[in-house]
Simulated assay, not measured.
Amino acid sequence: MNRRWWITSALYSFGCLIALAIVLTGVYAAPTEPHPDDTVVTTPDEVARYVTAHVPPQASGAPALSIPTGLYITLAEFTGPYTVEVAGQLWQRYADSLPEDLSEGIFIPNAKDQPTFTELYRERHNNEELIGWSFRVTLRETFDYSPYPMDRQQIRLRMWHPDFERNVFLTPDLSAYTSTDPAALPGVDTGLVLEEWGLQQAFFSYRAYVQNTDFGGPTYAEQQLHPELYYSLAVRRHLITPMIERGITPVVALITLFVIVTMLSKDRERRENFGVTPGSVIIVGAALLFAVLISHNAMRDEVKAAGLLYMGYMYVITYLVILGVVVNAVLIVGWPDLKLFREHDNLYVRLMYWPVITSTMLLATLLTFHD
Rank of each mutant, 00 (worst) to 15 (best):
A291D: 05
M159Q: 12
Q114P: 02
P182S: 12
M150Q: 08
P147L: 12
V327G: 00
L254R: 01
E245T: 14
V327W: 13
A306Y: 10
F78D: 07
Y148L: 08
A95S: 12
M352P: 02
N167E: 15
G198A: 14
R237N: 01
V84A: 06
L102I: 15
D371Y: 02
F107R: 11
T219I: 01
V168I: 15
L170I: 12
F258N: 14
P109E: 01
L338V: 02
G88T: 07
W91D: 06
Y145F: 15
T79Y: 11
G70A: 15
N2E: 15
P57M: 05
G312W: 03
I7F: 12
T249N: 01
A30V: 05
A286P: 00
M159C: 06
G198K: 13
N212E: 14
E33R: 15
V47H: 03
V292I: 12
I332E: 07
G191V: 11
P36C: 03
R207N: 08
R3L: 13
Y82Q: 14
S103F: 00
Y145E: 06
R350A: 13
L288T: 06
P63R: 14
T358D: 14
G216F: 09
H161Y: 09
A221S: 12
L225C: 00
D345V: 06
R237F: 05
R166V: 00
R342E: 11
I155A: 02
G247M: 05
V40T: 05
P109N: 07
V40D: 02
F143V: 11
P36G: 01
T74P: 01
S280N: 10
Y206N: 07
E104L: 12
T358Y: 07
M1E: 11
P250V: 07
M263L: 11
T190Y: 02
V252R: 06
R271D: 06
Q224D: 04
Y121W: 02
S232F: 00
D214M: 08
T262E: 01
T360P: 00
Y28H: 08
Y310Q: 04
V281E: 08
L320N: 05
G279N: 10
L139S: 04
Y220G: 04
N167F: 04
N273F: 14
V333M: 05
Q92R: 05
K304M: 14
